[in-house]
Design a protein around this nucleic acid. Sequence first.
DNA 1: GCGACAG
DNA 2: ATCTTGTCGC
Length: 258
Amino acid sequence: MSDIAERVGRILDDPENWPSDPREAVALQRRKAALVREERLDAASVRTIAGLDVSYAKDDTALAAAAVVVDVATLEVVESVAIDSEVSFPYISGLFSFRELPPVLKALGRLRTTPDVYLCDGFGLAHPRRFGVASHLGVLLDLPVVGSAKSVLYGRHSVPGDERGSWTPMVAGRSEIVPDSAALAADGAEVIGRVLRTRTGVKPVYVSVGHRVDLEGAADLVLRLSPRYRVPEPVRHADRLCGEHRKETLAARRAHGE
DNA sequence: GCGACAG
DNA sequence: ATCTTGTCGC
């Protein structure tokens, strides 16, 4: 068993980590947000990165999670795992990680590879309490995690230029489009993330620091991982894999008469 | 109180 | 997120 698998087991087994009440979950977020650290990440030095995602059935009957490790230089898949699990927390915007992390951690525990960085489909600091899923995972493991989301939850930002690579800062505040978020940042507003155009003429993604990375390095990495699709490849692979796995699990259950 | 609301 | 057919465009 890998070192990570052992740590993951302890994290999953500790009931302190998994409140069943949303109010307690919010209190946990406020407590643990203080543990998030920002560290410089040299995107060029990252060899492998694990993309993480979860797939649900609409009626909560089945759930699957996947972790796909990709070589940053070649974008080749190094290793991939998919697992099935049960729903243990409702979907509540802002408390997303209490629903997604148990299955994600279970998948990470099955990985033989030890990736340099993890990439979540969601936010880190760009969260009302600065504790989105990427920060939550990062603090639990004390490892580098980047958040890359497909829509906004929280934060004010302006629209970046149309070209791939264009970006604007996201600053603290209720979700809103503003004329010039860079000016707000220059005036001292708290920068919580970055709106990044990964494909020319296509809706941008929203990058934020999870834990032990910096925004510059996180955005650099996400752009490198998105040479042909809007969503960075590790997350895209994980998304496809857990979707397939959930359907296969459901088909297998039906074959056994359930 | 009202509206917004990652996946 | 999921369910779901066709359709518009490079």
